[in-house]
Nucleic acid binder design. Structure first.
Lengths: 339, 339
DNA sequence: TTTTATTTTGCAATCGATTGCAACCAATTA
DNA sequence: TAATTGGTTGCAATCGATTGCAAAATAAAA
C-alpha cells in the first residue's frame, strides 16, 4: 500500500475529467464552485487519500503559515513553557512551528535565524542568547519582510514587537519584601548586563534599596552568577566576607538560588532566619526544596500565547509595540521570618 | 530598506546576463559550472542579499529536509530533552524541526500527524499519547511514504523504527535494589497499561519479585497513578492499609514519587527507614528533595540524538528496527537504608 | 425566443529552484 | 584543417497548487 507518488489535484482532476483548477477551488473552499462537483471532488480526494502539498501551496501563495522560534535552550523550563504556549495558540490558527536552539551561542543564533529566513517563515520569535551584542541578523529578518517578535530577553537595538515581563517592578517588590522581613544586607546575584532583563532586575534591586534608604554595598553585588554552580561559588564568597549579607536575591535564576541554598545548608547557616533567599523564574523545584524558595513567576505559558496572539493581531501593522506581562512574586519559606 | 519582493535566482541571472540555471548551479555547488562565473554569482547573491527559497527548492526536489515531531507535551522535561537532542543532531545535517504537541489527546495527535503529512516532512518522530488505541493515523504516515520513528511510548501495532529504553530490565533492577535494601512489601504505582512502557515496568516489577521469591500482593498494585496528585492519593490509600507497604516503586514518574514523598512526610513516616521510594525519569528535582529520590535516568538527550541518527542512517531501508537504550538506576537517599 | 445576468468551468501563467538534454565554445588530437 | 573531446552554458520542462481572465453553461429577465 506504500505509494511512491502522492496523489495530486491533477490525479483527482483526471479521474473526474475536470480541470485541476476546479479541484483546487473545491478543496480550498474558495472561488466559485458548484456544490455538486465540490462533493464529487471531496469524495475522490478522500478515496485517493489526497494530502495537499503545503510546499506548493505556500510557494504559490507566498506565505508559509509557519512561525520560527529561536531560543537559547529548548529544554529549559521557561522556554519550553513559552513554546508550549505559542504552539497552542498557533495551532488553533493553523500555523506550524519550526524550532531552533542557539545554545547561548551568538553564531548558532545567526545560523538559526538564517535558516528560518530561508524557510520563508512568516514570523520569527526570538529570545536572544546571552552572548554577543551585534544584532544585524535581527535587522536582516526585518529587511526580508519577516515579522520579528522578541520576548523576555530582548534588545533595544532593533525595533520590533516585544513581549516582556515587568521585571524591574517585580524585582523591586521582591527586594522590598526582603526588607519588610527585616533583612538589611541584601546581596544581588546579577546576570549578563548586556541583556535588558538582567539590567532591569538590578535596577529594581537598586530602587528598592533607595526607597527604603538602605545603602548600596558594592561587595554584595556579584556578576554573572546564573547557574547553580556559579550561584554556589558566589555564595561561598559572600558568606565568607567579614560582614556577610543576611539575604541573597538570586536575580539570575532559581538554579542560582538553589546553589545558594545548598551552600547555606552545608555551612550550617539557617534559612530563612539567618539568610533569606529569593530566586527568579518559579521553576518547579522551588516549591519542594526545604525550605521552599521564594521566587518570581513569569507566567511563561501565558507569555507564549501572548506572543502568538500579538503576531496574529499586529502582524501586518509593522509598528513596534511592547506588551508587558506583570510577573508575580511568590513568597515561600526561604524568606519568611516574620509572622 | 524593507523589500517587498525577495531576490530570486532570476534577479541574479538578469544582473549577470546569464541563465537562471547557471545561477542555480553556482549556488548549489552542483553540476558543472565555471569557477569564475560561480564567483561572480556568489558575489552578486551576497550583494543582493539573496536567500534561497527553500519552499521552491524542496518542492522541486520532492523533499523537505524537515523532521516532524509529535509529543504529548513540549514542556515536560523528558520530552524537551529528547527534542533538544534531536535538534542538535538534525541541525548538523541541515534539517529543521516542526514540533507539535498532542496534549495527551488522541484527536489532537491525529491532527498533528496530518499536519505533518501535509507539510511533506521527510520523517515523523512520535511518542504516542496515553489516550486511544487506534493507530491508523500512524499507518497512514507510512502509506504516505514518510519515515516514521517512534520513541519511548511506542506501540507494537505499527511496524516502524523505534528507540526505546530497556524499561523492563531497569525496573527489575530497581525493585531488586529495593529488595536488597531489605524492603519486603513493595507497592507498585503503574501507568496506563495500553502503553508498552508501562506494561514493561510492571513486568520488571513482577520478575524481580519472582526472582527473589516474594509474593505478588494485589492490593499493593495501584493503577494510573502518574501525576503528583494521583501518586499522593494512591499513597494515602496504601499507607492506610492494615498491612501497608514498606516501599513504593512509582514506576509512572518522578512526579508521582514526589506525591508519595509528600504524603509520607505529612504522615510522619520516615523515608527511607520506614518507607523506601523509587521514582522514574530522573527529573531535576529528584536530586534536591529531602531525602533525595532514587530514580531512573532515561538518557533523554542521548535518546533524541539516537532518534535523529537512526533516521539519517536507516532512513531509506524501510526495515523496522528497534534501538534500545539502557537506562540507569540512580540510587539516592530515599531507598538507602543499608550501608 | 432572445437578451442579459450569473454561476461554473477551463486555460494558462505563476510562485522559485532544479535538472536532463542539447547547444556551444575552446582545446586537444588526428 | 577537420574531427574529437570535455567543460560550460542555456532552454525548457518540472515540482503541485493557485488565480486572473475568458469561455461556456445555466438561469433569469425581457
Amino acid at each position: 500500500m506504500k505509494q511512491k507518488k502522492r496523489t495530486t489535484i491533477y490525479d483527482i482532476a483526471e479521474k473526474l475529467n475536470i480541470a485541476a483548477s476546479s479541484v483546487s477551488r473545491a478543496l480550498s473552499n474558495s472561488g466559485s464552485i458548484n456544490e455538486a462537483t465540490k462533493m464529487r471532488v471531496l469524495a475522490v480526494a478522500d478515496e485517493l487519500n489526497y494530502k495537499r502539498n503545503v510546499l506548493a501551496s505556500n510557494l504559490r501563495k507566498g506565505q508559509s503559515k509557519t512561525i520560527g522560534i529561536v531560543v537559547p535552550r529548548i529544554n529549559q523550563n521557561f522556554f519550553s513553557n513559552v513554546i508550549s504556549g505559542i504552539e497552542e495558540a498557533a495551532h488553533q490558527k493553523g500555523y506550524n512551528l519550526i524550532i531552533c536552539q542557539s545554545n547561548e551561542s551568538h553564531d548558532k543564533e545567526i545560523q538559526c535565524v538564517n535558516t528560518l529566513i530561508n524557510q520563508h517563515v512568516d514570523c520569527i520569535v526570538i529570545s536572544v542568547s546571552a552572548e554577543g551584542d551585534d544584532y544585524s541578523h535581527l535587522q536582516n529578518v526585518i529587511n526580508n519582510g519577516i515579522q520579528l517578535i522578541q520576548f523576555d530577553r530582548v534588545t533595544d537595538k532593533v525595533e520590533t514587537l516585544k513581549v516582556i515581563n515587568d521585571t524591574e517592578q517585580v524585582s523591586m517588590e521582591a527586594v522590598s519584601h526582603l526588607i519588610d522581613q527585616g533583612y538589611k544586607r541584601i546581596a544581588l546575584l546579577e546576570g549578563p548586563q548586556n541583556l535588558d532583563i538582567f539590567r532591569q532586575r538590578k535596577t529594581g534591586y537598586l530602587k528598592a534599596l533607595k526607597k527604603h534608604k538602605l545603602p548600596v554595598i558594592k561587595e554584595l553585588v556579584v556578576e554573572n552568577a546564573w547557574t547553580k554552580e556559579l550561584g554556589a561559588k558566589a555564595t561561598r564568597k559572600l558568606l565568607g566576607l567579614p560582614n556577610p549579607p543576611d539575604a541573597i536575591f538570586a536575580s539570575t535564576s532559581d538554579f542560582s538560588a538553589l546553589g545558594v541554598l545548598e551552600v547555606a545548608s552545608v555551612m550550617g547557616i539557617k534559612v530563612p532566619s539567618e539568610l533569606g533567599i529569593c530566586g527568579y523564574s518559579n521553576e518547579d523545584f522551588t516549591e519542594i526544596t526545604s525550605p521552599s524558595i521564594t521566587t518570581i513567576d513569569q507566567f511563561s505559558i501565558e507569555m507564549g500565547k501572548t506572543v502568538a496572539n500579538l503576531y496574529f493581531k499586529e502582524g501586518s501593522s509593522g509598528k513596534p509595540k511592547t506588551i508587558s506581562i506583570k510577573p508575580r512574586l511568590i513568597v515561600r519559606a526561604s524568606t519568611k521570618r516574620k509572622g
